[in-house]
Design a protein around this nucleic acid. Structure first.
Lengths: 102, 102
DNA sequence: ACGTAGTATAAATCTATGTTGATATCAACC
DNA sequence: GGTTGATATCAACATAGATTTATACTACGT
């Protein structure tokens, strides 16, 4: 599923280990074994999170020999950041009036 | 607690109802009763989410008579959006080289 | 001071999901 | 073709957190 809403992407960034993976992939492409090494997490755990990230379109994967390399899709993160930013903009420009209670 | 990390704020935006509250507050200040009306959720549920949002510094509250009005803190959302955006920027400028496996 | 309305808190329940151990898949090398 | 190494999937378990019912708090009106 590629249609990711703000709620969906937020949920994905909400897990510490998954965010760590995103942060690591922001620097360079890495394969599963690297991420296992760098995070100290078990391999099935990493694979699970990578699947979540891939299904949401936040990372892309490419098999290289026996390994699978993962790359962060910057556009996906940017579009998410933009959506959040637009909500903030709306709030900044909102009226100061208060809706009275019934 | 006011020191909100990316993971924390992400977790807060990850709940559909809580995001709905944030989205509604982006337009205007509202009190608890309004949010109960607009969302159809039970009052304790709304109060709970408002507490979470307030503890994270995403909304501020002001008592007005028997009511409590809530306001979205645009700066908080903007700073979060910026942090996410910076990660995306890092990814966009990252090297295409792949770290070899050991 | 009492009753009422709006809101907040507490305890209990339920659901979603992260983690784990075991196993399956799949490519490379002999 | 069989073995090995890397990764993915599966089932079971554990935990975090959202929702609910009940209750407490607080300000206003009479």
């Amino acid at each position: 599923m590629l249609i990711s809403t703000v709620v969906d992407v937020s949920g994905i960034l909400a897990d510490p280990l998954r965010f760590r993976i995103v942060d690591l992939l922001a620097n360079e492409e890495l394969c599963t074994c690297h991420l296992v090494e760098l995070t100290g997490a078990k391999q099935p755990t990493i694979s699970h999170h990578l699947k979540v990230l891939r299904d949401a379109g936040i990372v892309s994967s490419e098999p290289v020999g026996r390994n699978t390399y993962y790359r962060l899709r910057a556009e996906a993160l940017q579009s998410y950041a933009l959506m959040v930013s637009e909500i903030a903009d709306r709030a900044a420009g909102a009226t100061r009036d208060r809706l009275p209670c019934l």
